[in-house]
Design a protein around this nucleic acid. Structure first.
Lengths: 191, 191
DNA sequence: AAATGGACTTGACATTTATCAAGCCAGTTA
DNA sequence: TAACTGGCTTGATAAATGTCAAGTCCATTT
């Protein structure tokens, strides 16, 4: 049930089987049905989630009811609201399953305990942040520097599978444009 | 010459004086004049920089010669191209001094050595990434969800001092709008 | 003192994107 | 089977933002 997590750890640090088992013991499994929430706006985000199966996404909602997709997470990815997790303030994000999914959860206390107990875990987490930071920075570069069409093309380059798993209206939201605009862009490209 | 760095470390981890001195010994100092580059597009980013004094910023340039500001860094902040630093691929970023500045530099090998030698340093770095990641995520939220005016207001809220130190054309670039648009937004607000 | 260049603003106009309203289609639900 | 819903597209129009060109102001250089 946690092969992917262990694989993710092994990819980033060299850990013994024993260390991997210790890590594993800190996580609990949860199944989510499509459209089920892992976190709702207003709650404190008390745990980090690793996706073993399926796909989730996080988003904010604005005053006019508009939805803004912050992140997608597929198998092998992490998702949470870091801000709320670390400050313990209520989150303004929703995290929801896009498909029937399975996640592994670690709550705050366990996370800190594991960081203290297992230096390898800290290294793993550091590397995760590194990668997440780099990915986000590239997204910022796209967002401020490119037209909607260029952003869309770059997204497809980076995540070619995304069209197969994410509805276009959510992709539009992720790119910061309306579904209508994305639809017209796609029409434009196809000619 | 490195009080700020040590302060930054002490804020995030509890370290002994000895550990702090070890950290310190890994860094070298460099002074930069206004407009001087710390990194130029095409070079590999071989070191991380901590700003002791002054202000720097990083930016990309696009095909049409347009400049896109990725990050500002003031006293007590870090700046580098993480992507290039970790992949050792040539950077597409420039890092330049906005004012006469002093930075502390640690190069890649030293960084890895220090990570291995001093667990506290790893914890420090992990927390830095955490914070950097959270800050970037908030920026993405702004960028995809807000109008130019809202983005500008939020920036002022978050960094009230920014107008005193950063020219408006760079703020415009950071927000992803043209200087003309920012100028009009400010006119609008002032009425 | 004059010349230069950078930062900023303004106006006219072009382009991009959003908004609103309508309709299509496929898959789910009653 | 019929109704419904979500996802997607299209058209008409409005709003936001970009582009280009000009000009002011101020600090720095000569």
């Amino acid at each position: 049930m946690s092969e992917l997590l262990l694989k993710s750890i092994r990819e980033k640090v060299t850990a013994t089987e024993e260390e991997l088992q210790i890590c594993k013991s800190y996580f609990t499994q949860k199944k989510l049905k499509k459209r089920q929430f892992l976190l709702q706006e207003g709650e404190v985000c008390s745990r980090l989630a690793f996706v073993e199966k399926g796909a989730l996404y996080s988003y904010t909602t604005d005053a006019k009811g508009g939805q803004h997709v912050i992140q997608f997470a597929f198998e092998g990815w992490w998702i949470s609201d870091m801000y709320s997790f670390f400050t313990q303030e209520p989150s303004n994000l929703n995290i929801e399953a896009l498909e029937n999914s399975e996640v592994l959860l670690i709550d705050q206390e366990q996370h800190y305990q594991l960081l203290a107990e297992l230096p390898k875990y800290e290294t793993y987490i550091r590397i995760l942040y590194q990668n997440a930071y780099i990915a986000l920075q590239r997204r910022v570069e796209s967002t401020i520097g490119l037209t909607a069409e260029e952003k869309y093309n770059r997204l497809l380059e980076q995540y070619p599978f995304i069209l197969q798993r994410i509805p276009l209206n959510l992709i539009a939201s992720y790119l910061g444009v309306t579904p209508e605009t994305l639809s017209r862009i796609r029409k434009q490209i196809s000619r």
